[in-house]
Design a protein around this nucleic acid. Structure first.
Length: 358
DNA sequence: AAGAAACCCAACCGCAAAATG
DNA sequence: CCATTTTGCGGTTGGGTTTCT
């Protein structure tokens, strides 16, 4: 079917976003909430296509995004989740809530791939090995997958045992999370002591985040006061200095938002992970509902785990398995479960990615 | 100091799935 | 059920920055 472009190509601006555009977009989303991206350019007057707006929001402006160096734990998780899930960056990103899929993908392509290749020189590596796996038998491939699963589990267990941040996530949290899947309003106190309330309208969510946005605007004003009176400048005319200002501003903004949202600003990716998971479950089934800024933004920006079945089994199962320090059920059980559920739908392509049939 | 090469990452593109009428 | 629109995802690229020679 001849698909129309997402936007009229003529008069659509491309390239780097300016601080002015960011502010316009953030202000609009603050007022209306994310979503309905189609209408964003027209309603805001931004000369951007809807896709570009969405991308800018989810990859950069959305509060709760951590930028900068990846921690060792994050790195480990990415490596092993990649081994387990393949290049399904969105799924991987769902386990690293403060990282975007784009970030993880970039990090993988620029750092980890190289690192692994280097480490595995002379040894059949992840990708290298998988590339040759087209010719291996199904049984062999299943064994490889089992090995990957064991490796992922072990790495995550190691990571958990090192810092043992599990104290942040109590069974109470989990219970509350699960219980909150019903449709009744609820309030939940997370591991940071933040009270997360669920409201019925998305607008109210963003009204409650007005303070965040105000701080964001304030932060921007401080770092680039000149921009206030200037009209939107062409990205091509943006000097390197301006660009770095933009980046600094955005990082500052994100930081501000994170703090305001009561989200962990710790560099410990694993703690973040667990913090996320302590509240993720109740977020899952309340997609259009609001909790608080962080929760809602995250909710919008991240795929609903329960709507994804990356390995043919509900991700919640994998999530539980990956993150359950005590491994409530045996590795063999999950392996068996996976294997039977996956059946023979898994194929391995030439790039070594594990693809799961629909 | 200057040019070349390598690196990095924000943003774009096209496809597919999901949602909607 | 079908056609169309919207959204989400993963691969790729352009160009700015950093490092090397």
């Amino acid at each position: 079917m001849g698909r129309l472009p997402c936007c009229d190509k003529t008069g659509v601006k491309k390239g780097p976003w300016t601080p002015e555009e960011d502010i316009i977009l953030v202000s609009y989303i603050q007022e209306h909430g994310p979503g309905n991206w189609r209408s964003v350019p027209t309603n805001t007057g931004l000369l951007r296509c809807s896709k570009s707006c969405r991308l800018r929001w989810t990859n950069y402006l959305r509060p709760g995004i951590k930028r900068g160096n990846f921690t060792e734990h994050e790195e480990k998780m990415i490596i092993h989740l990649q081994a387990l899930l393949g290049n399904r960056w969105a799924a991987i990103a769902s386990y690293l809530p403060e990282r975007t899929d784009n970030d993880i993908k970039n990090y993988w392509n620029t750092h980890l791939k190289k690192k692994l290749r280097h480490q595995l020189t002379g040894v059949e590596g992840y990708n290298k090995g998988s590339r040759t796996s087209q010719s291996i038998s199904k049984g062999q491939w299943e064994k490889r997958l089992q090995t990957d699963i064991h490796m992922a589990k072990r790495a995550l267990s190691e990571a958990l045992s090192v810092e043992n941040p599990s104290s942040h996530v109590t069974q109470q949290d989990i219970k509350l999370s699960r219980a909150s899947n019903d449709s009744s309003p609820y309030a939940i106190c997370d591991s940071h002591g933040t009270i997360w309330s669920r409201e019925s309208s998305s607008t109210s969510t963003y009204a409650s985040s007005a303070e965040n946005i105000a701080r964001l605007l304030e932060g921007w004003a401080k770092t680039s006061p000149v921009n206030h009176q200037s009209s939107i400048s062409s990205p091509s005319t943006l000097s390197a200095q301006t660009k770095s200002d933009t980046t600094a501003t955005q990082e500052n903004n994100n930081r501000t938002s994170i703090v305001a949202a009561g989200s962990s600003s710790s560099d410990d990716g694993f703690e973040s992970l667990l913090s996320f998971n302590s509240s993720s479950s109740h977020v899952l089934s309340t997609k259009s509902d609001s909790t608080n800024d962080c929760c809602t933004f995250q909710d919008e920006g991240k795929p609903s785990l329960e709507t994804m079945y990356p390995l043919g089994v509900p991700l919640s199962l994998l999530e539980k398995w990956l993150l359950d320090d005590n491994c409530g059920f045996s590795i063999q059980a999950i392996d068996d479960s996976l294997m039977s559920d996956l059946a023979l739908d898994i194929v391995c392509d030439g790039d070594g990615d594990h693809h799961v049939g629909a």
